[in-house]
C-alpha cells in the first residue's frame, strides 16, 4: 500500500527533518518536496510522508486540505495562477482571467485536456505594484495585458 520513496528523496527528507526538534514540523517542506517530485499528493504520498514523519496519515490529510498550494489531483504542466484580489482587479485583472479562459477553453480550477495548463484564480500574490499579475508555476509575471499573456504562453511551449 505504501509508496516507497527513492533513497535520494528520503535523504532530502531527512535533511529537512534535521532542522526541527520535532519531525512533524518538517511536514510542510516535505509535502512541498514530494509534490515537486510527484506532481500531486495522493493518499499514497500522504501515507508515505506520514510514515516517514511518524504521524497518523490523517494529520497529513488535514494539512494537505488546509493549504491551497497542496493539490490532491494532478495539475497541468504549467499552473497559471491569476490573482483576483483587489489591487489586481483595480487594474482590470478580471480581463486577464477572462482572456485565459477564452484562450485555453477552460474555466478557473480546470486543466486543459492535453494536461498542459491548469488555470486557477488565486488570492493576493504579493505583487500588487505589478498588477495585474499571475504566477506560472513559481515565476511571477506582472503588468499583464492580453498581449503580454499571449507572449508568455508562447514562451511556455
Amino acid at each position: 500500500m505504501n509508496r516507497e520513496f527513492t533513497a535520494d528523496l528520503k535523504k532530502r527528507i531527512e535533511e529537512i527533518t534535521a532542522r526541527y526538534p520535532s519531525r512533524q514540523a518538517a511536514l510542510l517542506p516535505v509535502l512541498h518536496l514530494v509534490q515537486s517530485e510527484t506532481g500531486f499528493l495522493s493518499a499514497e504520498e500522504e501515507r508515505a510522508v506520514a510514515s516517514i514523519l511518524g504521524l497518523p496519515p490523517i494529520k497529513v490529510r488535514e494539512v494537505v486540505t488546509f493549504y491551497t498550494m497542496f493539490t490532491r489531483k494532478p495539475l497541468g504542466r504549467f499552473h497559471l495562477q491569476v490573482c483576483s484580489n483587489l489591487s489586481c482587479s483595480l487594474a482590470d485583472g478580471e480581463r486577464i482571467l477572462r482572456h485565459l479562459q477564452a484562450k485555453l477553453g477552460i474555466g478557473a480550477g480546470e486543466t486543459t485536456p492535453d494536461g498542459k495548463y491548469t488555470l486557477t484564480e488565486v488570492e493576493c500574490l504579493g505583487a500588487c505594484e505589478q498588477a495585474p499579475c499571475m504566477m506560472v508555476n513559481f515565476d511571477y509575471h506582472g503588468n499583464l495585458d492580453p498581449e503580454k499573456v499571449d507572449r508568455i504562453l508562447e514562451e511556455l511551449k
Binding site: P56, P57, I58, R61, T65, F66
Partner: peptide, 19 residues
C-alpha cells in the same frame, strides 16, 4: 487512534475519516 480529522478550511471545513 486518530480516526477522525478536520479537513478543508473556512466554511468548507468538515470532519472526516482517512480514506
Amino acid at each position: 487512534t486518530h480516526e477522525l480529522g478536520l479537513f478543508e478550511r473556512g466554511i468548507h471545513s468538515e470532519i472526516g475519516g482517512y480514506e
